[in-house]
Write a protein that binds this DNA or RNA. Sequence first.
DNA 1: TGATTGATGTTACCGAGTCACATCACACTA
DNA 2: TAGTGTGATGTGACTCGGTAACATCAATCA
Lengths: 191, 191
Amino acid sequence: MARWAPNARMRLVEAAVDLFTEQGYDATTVSQIAERAGGLTRTTFFRHFADKREVLFAGQDVHRQVLADAIAAAPDSATPLEMVASALDALTGWFGDDRREFSTRVRAIMDANSELRERAVFKRVALAQSVTDALHERGVPDPAAGLAADLCVRAFFEAYERWADPAGPASFTDTARQAFDELRTALATLS
Amino acid sequence: MARWAPNARMRLVEAAVDLFTEQGYDATTVSQIAERAGGLTRTTFFRHFADKREVLFAGQDVHRQVLADAIAAAPDSATPLEMVASALDALTGWFGDDRREFSTRVRAIMDANSELRERAVFKRVALAQSVTDALHERGVPDPAAGLAADLCVRAFFEAYERWADPAGPASFTDTARQAFDELRTALATLS
DNA sequence: TGATTGATGTTACCGAGTCACATCACACTA
DNA sequence: TAGTGTGATGTGACTCGGTAACATCAATCA
């Protein structure tokens, strides 16, 4: 028998989401999260997450990688918009239905707290920066790369808002494609 | 003779910028800032600013107002791009040369600290949201309003990066106009 | 003259985040 | 089989950000 139960990190995330849902983010201490995650301590929590907020963003690095890989894999003939469209497909495809309920709960927690929204915005910009960097690698210059990246991330989060809702649409990918098309159409109305 | 020296708020900002420059943001405590600002205390600092970071963003609400007012004042015949272009002119025009050295110092402080960059990103998004709201008021629908607002804010900060540099260009307004034009040109290269 | 106001100070508290050091099951090696 | 890491965890102590209740006192005004 192992000395410690495995998956401490995942247990911390689940404990945190549960407690934040029950009591709110501010009213929950890191000690409470660690205790609920199988009798751990504060120190262990901070060994897994840089700060209290970060527990809600665990695993987002994967999203960056999915986007970057898709752009790297796009055909040479693709335009910047086609590159980010395929990246958008890759990322929304990565989200399964099993993640939907969790996403809904996390979204509700974040909506209720300004510190968390601040971190979420930061992560969103970091995601856009990853896309921008990947486009640079494919030869897309500034500032076009930044604009294309923004369209990609904007479509993603617009679709996420709709999908991470119990009454929302079933297909994340279709929702995102639709949001992306709406953005492309809107571009023509600006001038 | 008054009991307290006036302009405590401004003195706190100046003391903070001085100390952050000398010692770095992390190594400076709120007590040190308050003490340097004429023998004040921690409590007084937190009566003027919601948290330690906020002292570096004091007065940014004015920027939101300047942008919103300019969009509200644009002629009815203006396209969304023309509206945000005039807002961009208004905001860059608001910055005088007297603010340039201060901006340079603040920029250096923020570049060195990730907490501060996070707050800066949040403020930037809040600024874009203000522009979006102002465009809604003028009848620009979603998602076009968000896109136009992004172009505006993107041009502003691109120009700010160049201007808030001792070796940068002299005219903030001209720099921003140029950045905005570059963005418009890049839009045509996306698809 | 006396009450009110408003910016400030005092004190005490909580919790986030850090650090040095201790613990101990497990794995590996001689 | 005994000994020796190793790595995830715990312990205790500390600093500092942030909050709240209460006190102070010059200026102002009734």
